[in-house]
Amino acid sequence: METAQKLNDTAQTNPAARMAQEPETMNQRIPYPERTIGKPLCDDPKMSMRNVDVFYGDSQAIYGVDLDIGKNEVIALIGPSGCGKSTFLRCLNRMNDTIDICKVKGSFMLEQDNIYDPKLDVVELRARVGMVFQKPNPFPKSIYENVAYGPRLHGLANKKFELDEIVESSLRKAGLWDEVKDRLDQPGTGLSGGQQQRLCIARSIAVSPEVVLMDEPCSALDPIATAKIEELIDELSGQYTIAIVTHSMQQAARVSQRTAYFHLGRLIEVNDTNTVFTAPEHALTEAYITGRFG
């Protein structure tokens, strides 16, 4: 927490320094590292990605990324806008399949299964790797139906009381139960932004995924709602593997155990969150976390 506070100060009090440095000149001056600095790999990974290249049509969005995500850890992906962190995240449950022009190369393993293996079923994959999006996107249905949607799809509950149980426990885990238990039949779109996002989290953990991907889950929320979500991520961290993309370095510092820094499609540095924020090895990482570009 302390580190984050410090970082925050530097970033906020130095607007002049930020303006003075143009990102392009920065890029030219600081070369990319030969290979990712720090500890991109771990011993017993939940997911492991090697040599990942992603293309949108003719332009390449990600260049040769190697990264492991450990079991039940929270990993934060940070970096300036357009650096490919969201794209990378969306590859992990093949959400990029829905974009025609997007092509993905490299190997993606979820434990023993190759994610891009044509034999592996994308429906099954997405049931195992859930996703929470930048903007809360509850379905225009009741709160109950929102959470019950996944279990119903996959036939996880055969009886009404089983479904009720799943809904309740998911909402409890998402810290939303006490707020909505009396109005489960009201539309999910009627909740506040922060509640909607927690509803989306409840929705995705209702199918008991192994991994939850979060794509800037707090960027559309106010600080109080953000704090609640961060608390929630903290609570979930023991049970689920979580990969979170965030713009806010404080958030990364608060919720994650490891942090990966992306820059223009390249994975520059991965390390324990503490190390990244207190002693970044690469100049680009340092430039970013000290707020010289964003």
Binding site: D121, A127, S208
Partner: peptide, 16 residues
């Protein structure tokens, strides 16, 4: 293999 995965696999054929 988790319980979820098993359940999902069972439902897949009908769903497809």
């Amino acid at each position: 293999m988790s319980k979820t995965t098993e359940q999902v696999r069972k439902s897949l054929k009908a769903r497809y």
